[in-house]
């Protein structure tokens, strides 16, 4: 049997679907449930902000990787350069000190020699001053 036709066009029928809405009681329950979900979401946001940041970093590692590598290489180069410069400057200080010590000792030994030569032999106990001075001189003149 052919169904009875209604006096509706397709557009009118579709427009009627606008009124196909749930009752008010449904919306009350809906809103309550939604508030719970939103409250959980707020809590989650607060607790996991750090985790989220790390997660974002992890997810975007492809973007950060070249930059991070460049930074590592750069800091390594800077560190090694500084360390080398410091080492060199220390060596210069040591060398300079050596030179100074060397000259001073030379002077000291010379003056000691002069003093020794002027002192009568009988007054010399063991010539320990000269020995000490020579030892020190040897020690610093490597």
């Amino acid at each position: 049997m052919k169904p009875k036709k209604l006096n509706f066009s397709l557009e009118e029928l579709l427009h009627l679907k606008r009124y196909e809405m749930p009752p008010e009681a449904f919306w009350e329950a809906f809103e309550k449930q939604l508030q719970c979900r939103l409250a959980l979401e707020v809590e989650r946001k607060r607790s996991f902000s750090l985790v989220k940041m790390l997660d974002a970093l992890y997810k975007n590692w492809v973007r950060w990787f070249p930059l991070a590598t460049c930074l590592c290489v750069l800091s390594f180069v800077v560190y090694t350069q500084c360390f080398r410069a410091e080492k060199l400057s220390n060596r210069f200080v040591v060398v300079a000190e050596d030179i100074v010590c060397h000259r001073a000792l030379k002077q000291f030994v010379l003056s000691a020699d002069q003093q020794l030569s002027s002192v009568p032999v009988k007054n010399l106990v063991s010539g320990s001053q000269k020995i000490v001075a020579t030892d020190t001189y040897k020690r610093f003149s490597f």
């Binding site: 052919k2 169904p3 036709k5 209604l6 006096n7 509706f8 066009s9 397709l10 029928l13």
Partner: peptide
């Protein structure tokens, strides 16, 4: 889409 719907509901709609 409307042509398809009209075809599917042809027995119920007016002027089709």
């Amino acid at each position: 889409a409307k042509e398809q719907l009209k075809q599917l509901l042809k027995d119920y709609l007016k002027d089709y």
